[in-house]
């Protein structure tokens, strides 16, 4: 297992970025962003094979698609700190004439983004297309995705889940952020989905559980296992159990911070819990 100190430091810095971005424009989605920070930090800095720079086709490297586009704050912070664009640009999040739209898009040409997302349930289909393009191109790299658990209520996902197994798309690892929350409350209350694991398995996927989805070592271990299951005729699903709002105590154990920004006082409190590591933007 690699030394995870730099990933821990980056995680704390990304949390600060998230809080400051949404605070500045008094909008955005901090809860789910904080819940997936460890995962995306690990994915971009330890798990994915990435080339220098950015080109849309991404031949010869792993690809990532964010399907739950509302967690754009964590995505923007992680990809800017992975080198796709200057971190100072995080200052423009959700402002007029910015490349950092409320939900990620290719429209303004932001490097690191390959598809628009925000209208939920579309990312897995896109990722499957990209995975099949890789096969046609004899490109041995993988396609990674991230989806919200509430997002699975969108029917298009199940078309994609059925297709992926039926067509043996085995170069894809789809991660579901199991935080059990959506805008209107707990997923179990809004629309109980039963066992997501049983559903994916019934559709013919390999399912890997990461019980501690906010623990970097657990993520690296689980994703290594997921990767070792690719190329075997089945798509791979990772069920990542996370805590919405992780790392900011008053944002945890509630869905209240799904789409709400902290005020000045709350920002100060959140930042105090996450002292600067790599330097604010």
């Amino acid at each position: 297992m690699p030394n995870t100190k730099h990933l821990e430091d980056l995680t704390i810095q990304v949390r600060r970025d998230i809080l400051r971005m949404v605070h500045k424009v008094n909008s955005g989605h901090p809860g789910g962003s904080l819940g997936c920070t460890e995962f995306l930090v690990s994915l971009y800095n330890e798990i994915m094979v990435r080339k220098e720079g950015f080109d849309m086709d991404g031949i010869g490297e792993d690809l990532f698609f964010l399907s739950n586009g509302h967690i754009s704050p964590v995505f923007y912070s992680v990809i800017s700190r992975a080198g796709y664009f200057p971190v100072e640009e995080l200052n423009t999040f959700r402002l007029l004439n910015s490349r950092l739209q409320g939900h990620p898009t290719t429209h303004e040409g932001l490097p690191g983004v390959r598809i628009a997302s925000g209208s939920l349930g579309q990312g897995m289909s896109v990722a499957l297309g990209a995975a099949q393009a890789k096969k046609l191109n004899r490109d041995n790299h993988l396609v990674y995705t991230l989806h919200g658990d509430g997002e699975l209520q969108e029917g298009q996902n199940w078309e994609a889940i059925m297709y992926a197994a039926g067509k043996k798309v085995d170069n894809i690892i789809c991660t579901i952020d199991l935080n059990g929350q959506q805008i209107d409350g707990a997923t179990d209350e809004v629309l109980p989905m039963g066992s997501i694991k049983a559903k994916f398995e019934a559709f013919g996927w390999v399912v890997i559980d990461i019980e501690e989805g906010n623990n970097i070592e657990a993520i690296l271990k689980g994703m290594a296992k997921a990767k070792s299951n690719t190329g075997k005729g089945k798509p791979v699903c990772v069920l990542l159990k996370t805590m919405m709002g992780n790392g900011v105590d008053f944002m945890m154990h509630t869905h209240a911070w799904h789409g709400k920004a902290p005020n000045d006082e709350q920002l100060a409190k959140g930042l105090a819990q996450n002292p600067e590591t790599l330097g604010d933007y």
């Binding site: 849309m56 086709d57 991404g58 031949i59 690809l63 698609f65 390959r114 598809i115 579309q122 990312g123 897995m124 289909s125 896109v126 990722a127 499957l128 297309g129 990209a130 995975a131 099949q132 393009a133 890789k134 046609l136 191109n137 490109d139 029917g155 298009q156 078309e159 994609a160 059925m162 297709y163 039926g166 067509k167």
Partner: peptide, 22 residues
């Protein structure tokens, strides 16, 4: 690519196939 009776999935897969030059 025979997608089956799943047009939404087809449009998404088509979008994804362009990523890679198709």
């Amino acid at each position: 690519f025979q997608i089956g009776i799943a047009e939404a999935n087809m449009m998404g897969i088509a979008a994804g196939l362009t990523i890679g030059g198709k």
